[in-house]
Amino acid sequence: MKKSLDLDISLGLDYIKDAIESNPHVKYLHVDHSSRNKKDENIILLARKDKAVKEKLKYFTNRGFLTYTRRDKISSLVHVSELKNLWIPVKNGDFLINEDGLVYTYSPPLDGRKVKRLLVVFSSIATAPSTSSLMRYFEHNFKSIQKYIPQDVGLLRIADVGGVVGGYYMNTNYLINNEKNIQNLIKKISQEKEIEQKNIVLYGVSKGGSGALLHSLVGGYKSVCVDPIVADSYYEKFMNDAHFTIGTFPESKEQRFSRLVKLSNIEVVRETISIVTSKNSPQFSIIYETLGDKFMQAASVFISKNENIKDHPDVGPNTIHATVMMINMAFYNLTLSGTLVSI
């Protein structure tokens, strides 16, 4: 049985499909893109400019293959089931991986006391989203956050393995049980640490905010969601599908979040959901349109007027104080319904 397969990006998609489907046990793909590569670029960067390469990369992704390195003009992809044997931080124990293939880390309270509460951090889009490194799935946002929250809080970070640059902690065309697996991981860690659900808070920025909001709605957890991306339209229409969402998910974010909002109990929303955003972010109007006025009026919403916010990526770094405030309020069972505007 072959464990790896050499392919040329210039081959037709049907040929590539036949080659992969004829070798179901293959765990590694080595894709030569020298015929398309005028510069020193990997397959993700090429796909951003070349529709044919993008179509093939999405096919690889929908078969469970993830880019992990580039050597010269060959990009190598690994099957998600092989991460435990390839990803060095997983192999050396810096990252943990469970039976469902979820990669995560857990950090106990800083001063060594018994953990009584849990903060779950979902990763944003990576600082270098087109890197070949698998670390694009595990951006470690706000590394010092434990210094600013109660001393008995443990920290669970979950990698967003899936998709080309991330799966938004949603089900993908390949990881069809991703949401369920993430819910199970949060539940398992909290049970092992004997943490009650009311003492769990989910937090994330941008893509991480999407994950925090989705899993808050699914699992009934408290959450602080910083400028969450709840619709694909902006990145698909105006940024050439920058996050590779077209054709890689069974349903769009608009569909998923609209459905969750319809199923949500407004009183639960009032007690659990906090959103930080800014009118200077293109996501602001999308958040209101997708989630709806009734939902947003029930949630605690902090709208920042910080003059340093010019675009979506500016929201997280320039709302740290508000975010920390709302995380601590969630831990101390303090809720604010309606909209707050920063000064």
Rank of each mutant, 00 (worst) to 15 (best):
100 D>L: 07
282 P>R: 04
21 E>L: 11
46 L>D: 00
260 L>A: 01
166 G>L: 00
216 S>L: 08
31 V>C: 12
40 D>P: 05
275 I>N: 00
14 D>P: 01
233 S>L: 11
85 N>Y: 14
90 V>F: 07
4 S>H: 13
10 S>Q: 06
9 I>V: 13
310 K>M: 12
62 N>P: 10
193 K>T: 01
42 N>Y: 06
1 M>I: 07
1 M>H: 10
260 L>V: 02
176 I>S: 10
84 K>Y: 08
23 N>D: 01
186 I>A: 05
102 L>Y: 09
48 R>T: 06
293 D>L: 10
174 Y>N: 09
243 H>N: 13
152 D>P: 12
45 L>H: 08
73 K>L: 11
82 E>Y: 15
131 T>Y: 08
170 M>R: 10
327 I>S: 04
77 L>F: 12
145 I>Q: 06
284 F>L: 12
182 I>D: 00
231 A>S: 14
180 K>Q: 14
2 K>F: 06
285 S>P: 00
316 G>H: 01
150 P>E: 14
179 E>Y: 02
98 N>R: 08
321 H>S: 15
132 S>R: 04
34 S>K: 14
10 S>P: 02
195 I>W: 08
26 V>Q: 01
192 E>Q: 13
191 Q>H: 15
165 V>W: 02
259 R>W: 14
166 G>W: 00
263 L>G: 10
331 F>I: 07
25 H>A: 11
330 A>C: 11
300 S>P: 06
110 L>Y: 07
159 A>F: 04
295 F>A: 02
227 D>Q: 07
238 F>S: 15
250 P>D: 06
289 E>K: 14
7 L>C: 10
179 E>I: 00
199 N>Q: 14
310 K>P: 03
126 A>F: 07
111 D>V: 00
325 M>N: 15
121 V>R: 03
133 S>V: 03
305 K>L: 14
318 N>I: 05
21 E>I: 05
144 S>N: 15
334 L>T: 09
241 D>W: 05
119 L>K: 05
60 F>L: 05
207 K>T: 06
341 V>T: 07
329 M>W: 06
287 I>C: 06
89 P>L: 11
192 E>N: 12
9 I>A: 11
